[in-house]
Design a protein around this nucleic acid. Structure first.
Lengths: 319, 319
DNA sequence: GGCAATGCGGACAGTTTCCGCCCTCGATTC
DNA sequence: GAATCGAGGGCGGAAACTGTCCGCATTGCC
């Protein structure tokens, strides 16, 4: 049986390559008779993976899109590519699929052979700073998978934390949720030492590790962790609210400046407003539009842009 | 058998979740006896997928990293997350794994159910402009998968092309290689109408489609397609060579400005040099370092920075 | 220390399934 | 029309699977 099941997996793996396979060649490769191949193909179809066949000479089998995802059979490099892709996506907290990214990452990391893990680590480090608006602090994808594991497994979590005011502490908490917020990730956890719920910014954690000790999850005093987080953050987060006029059609701005509200003023002008916690991010995004603009708020952003202005002036010297 | 093989896949799927499963629960879920579960676990191990078991109460099975990648069983959202992650990675042409990214993308897109494909498309469009240094022209990941398919399947390819000088043409070529170069992708193909080899920038293609017509691949007049491309591009590419002094330790610059040479001047200063074909990319990366710098070459970059300088000046008004 | 939960694995018997070998048929390409 | 491919029915022997026994080891909790 192990033989039959293994053969089915190999068959799936072959059929996932972007080409067509004549039954005779599959039979040669898998060392069974062509009749068995036909039966295997039937089995795959029965399992819900649509194998399409073209008749006639030059014909062959290939796997096509069906209603369910078939198991992905990846070679080493593809696995590394996927891991790296997920890391960049998680680091940018791509809107709408943050949790899924982390879940997929956790799933992949759980089974990723160590030799590949090393390659992912090396590549991940090398490609980190391509992200726009990096203020030097980006979340470590490794941390996210550790947290996801601890949450799913209800294991206590130990880490060191640098609070916003710079105070460092050692924590030992019961993790409950991982919440993306803008470009940040927050851990919602119960801190038994302080006997209360706490929020931790993942990029401020150092060396989080699941301790293996199980705990019975407590009920969060709110239905929606994200709402609870927002409520808690309100007022204490150092976020900047930007309001600016941009001389570019609203359609273009929406396409190129994600996460902000865009309001049309006229065909060639619009007004953007939005929130972020770093001035760099806002400034670069406005500049990146490549058009004229005016910043109305906040004063800090104006000051930041003046700083940039002066810095560029010093960099290129007098005109 | 279909049943046994299907059960093994379900088992793999369960074991890939980040938790432990007692055999009794697996037996309940898969509707077989615990003895069969033990045998299934053995089968998985025999296939090379290491299932670890913890003894004692609170024990259970889980899949751990082995020497080979097990088939990944993804739910809808995870599949979407992976597709989106690969797209961002491919768009940025993350160094060293470009081809693997495209291969994995092609594999995934081939079997991605259409309802998920739509979600990926929507998300991909929304997240496009986060990339730094976008000059508005980024490669469409969809194109890459079409090209990869055509190359692997030796099918002729039809597309419309806008050359660097703006001339538009309709092409019908025999694709041979997909070569990443910097942040660009190039297709190496034989053009039967012109009876010679041609290079096409993927982001300048419109609506590439594989025609289904097969061809016998010709030998490229060079061993390495990448080298052949470089040779061909030499002199005709509009690339800018930057030389700048940056007032930041060389170590920091290397970590935050990928793809350029960094040479230490003293502990707080270094000199960077590199190539790129857009001024925006170079300018933003220099600014993003957040430190003082001087640009020595090229004159175009200095001019571009002056433009930025003036634009910021107009944006924030007189100090 | 005992109990309960967990995993491990041998033996057996009945049933099912698989596999290779025949065969015919339909579709497609050259 | 010939060659090549997929689809699928039937047959018989061999192999595999499954459930039910059984006793064993390990771990955590009371």
């Amino acid at each position: 049986m192990t033989e039959t099941a293994g053969r089915l997996l190999s068959l799936l793996s072959l059929l996932q390559l972007p080409r067509e396979w004549p039954g005779s060649e599959l039979a040669r490769r898998l060392e069974v008779s062509p009749r068995t191949i036909r039966r295997d193909v039937d089995r795959l179809r029965e399992l819900g993976y649509p194998v399409e066949a073209s008749m006639g000479a030059e014909g062959g089998y290939r796997l096509v899109a069906g209603t369910a995802m078939p198991p992905l059979l990846l070679d080493d490099e593809e696995a590394v590519a996927i891991a790296v892709g997920l890391r960049t996506a998680a680091r940018q907290a791509v809107a709408g699929i943050e949790e899924a990214s982390v879940r997929a990452m956790a799933k992949l990391e759980q089974v990723l052979p160590s030799r590949l893990r090393r390659r992912v680590g090396a590549l991940g480090a090398a490609t980190l700073p391509v992200v726009l608006g990096a203020d030097g602090v980006t979340v470590d994808p490794e941390h996210l998978t550790v947290l996801a594991w601890a949450i799913a497994n209800r294991e206590r979590l130990r880490f060191r934390y640098s609070a916003a005011d710079g105070a460092r502490s050692s924590r030992h908490v019961e993790p409950l949720h991982l919440v993306p917020s803008g470009r940040r990730w927050y851990l919602v956890a119960f801190d038994p030492e302080r006997e209360d719920w706490r929020f931790f910014r993942v990029d401020r954690m150092t060396a989080p590790t699941a301790t293996g000790a199980r705990f019975a999850p407590r009920a969060l005093p709110a239905d929606d962790p994200a709402a609870y987080l927002r409520e808690h953050m309100l007022g204490r987060a150092s976020t900047y609210a930007v309001v600016a006029t941009v001389h570019l059609p609203a359609r273009d701005v929406r396409a190129r400046f994600p996460g902000v509200e865009v309001e049309e003023v006229d065909e060639r002008t619009c007004r953007v407003s939005g929130l972020d916690d770093t001035l760099e991010y806002l400034a670069f995004h406005l500049l990146q539009l490549g058009c004229e603009f005016e910043v109305h708020e906040p004063a800090e952003l104006v000051a930041h842009l003046r700083g940039l202005h002066d810095r560029i002036g010093r960099a290129v010297g007098p005109g």
